[in-house]
Computed example of a mutant assay.
Amino acid sequence: MACDLRAAVIGSPIGHSKSPVLHAAAYRFIGVDCDYSAIDVPESALTGFITDVRSTPGWRGLSVTMPLKPGIARLADGVSELAAVLGVANTVVVDHAGGGIRLQAYNTDVTGISHALAAAGVDGPARGVILGGGGTAAAAVAGLAGLGARSVSVVVRRPGAAADLLRIGSALGLDVSLQPWDRAGERVRSADVVVSTLPPRAADGLGRELATDARFRTQATLLDVAYDPWPSVLADAWERAGGTIVPGLDMLLHQAVEQVRLFFPEVAQDRAAVLGVMCDAVGATRR
């Protein structure tokens, strides 16, 4: 018999996503019968896909990956206060209350980043650095603000394209500066915490630069959201230099726990226990 409830992760490409495994494990644990799948939705097809969701019974929620995070925030009926500030969302709750359908957007990437870093011991970093200026970088600004960072440098290849991060920092009470990519090595060497929001292998050049610098030593923490392959070239160089590395899988796990809570608020959930079964499902270390 087909399952009456459904949820999915959407984006393009989407075949690499571990979200179906994580959500399936969580649903079994909390006793929810819900089908969760991965659906390739290119940016040009997002509006049509959301129209279909509105007309199809049984939808509970969507996990949203790039390049759809800005678009989904615009198409939702309501947006959480934080997601509105960021202008990007990665989670949509389909609410059937009152006989209609309402799509409410959230950004659980912020929770994923802050919880993953906190679990690694990051607390009140003085100098944060973010590599990349896209939607995940916006969440990283908010995540570092939540951890008490005093200032954050965002290192990008086109600073003008990331100017909205200055507005986000100001809204969150955080001093954000934009730096050109040729200063990436200088910035990460002096950081307390670094969050790389770049796609897989995009930071390999920086990683090789650090790996060949015999003088480079650090006690800072690096979260690299690109978890496949792992360790990345950057993460390997960072760990060899004495730093702490946090895989992007940890971020994915923590944000997925929050998504499950939002999709099924009527079901009692022990956050630590749900995180544990998700870790077991993908062979991740419990933190």
Rank of each mutant, 00 (worst) to 15 (best):
G207F: 06
G173T: 12
R158V: 15
V141A: 00
T51L: 13
G78H: 13
L68Q: 02
A163I: 12
V154N: 01
M1P: 04
V154Y: 05
D123H: 12
A116T: 00
Q255Y: 02
Q179K: 13
V129Y: 06
D40M: 07
V92Y: 04
V122N: 04
G283T: 07
P199N: 09
R271A: 10
A97G: 08
S170E: 13
A25H: 01
C279S: 01
A256L: 10
H23P: 05
R215S: 13
P159L: 04
T51M: 14
P20Q: 02
A105I: 15
G71W: 00
A7T: 11
D164P: 06
R127K: 11
S170D: 14
M1I: 04
R54H: 11
D270C: 02
T91S: 03
A89S: 11
P57S: 12
A8Q: 10
P70R: 12
M278Q: 06
L144W: 01
I130S: 00
D123T: 12
A83N: 02
S232H: 10
L166S: 03
D175S: 13
G11D: 06
G242V: 07
V267D: 05
V176L: 08
I101G: 03
T111E: 03
V277G: 02
P57N: 13
V195P: 00
H16W: 10
S12C: 07
G134R: 03
N90K: 05
D95V: 08
L210V: 06
F49I: 03
A83V: 01
P159Y: 03
G15H: 15
G87N: 03
D270A: 04
A142Y: 03
L234E: 06
A202H: 07
L117G: 03
D236M: 09
R60F: 09
E43V: 07
G99R: 10
T221W: 04
V195M: 08
G243N: 09
R208Y: 08
G48N: 12
G15T: 14
V246I: 10
G128A: 09
R28D: 14
R201F: 11
G132A: 07
S55E: 15
T285S: 06
V93R: 07
S44F: 14
L82N: 01
R102K: 15
P13R: 05
L206Y: 09
W181S: 03
A149S: 09
R287E: 09
A137S: 07
S44W: 11
G248R: 09
L144S: 00
H96E: 15
V129Q: 08
D224I: 11
V188G: 02
I30F: 11
A214T: 14
S190H: 12
P125H: 04
P42F: 15
T56I: 11
G169R: 01
V155M: 06
L144I: 03
V21H: 07
A118D: 04
M1F: 12
W230C: 05
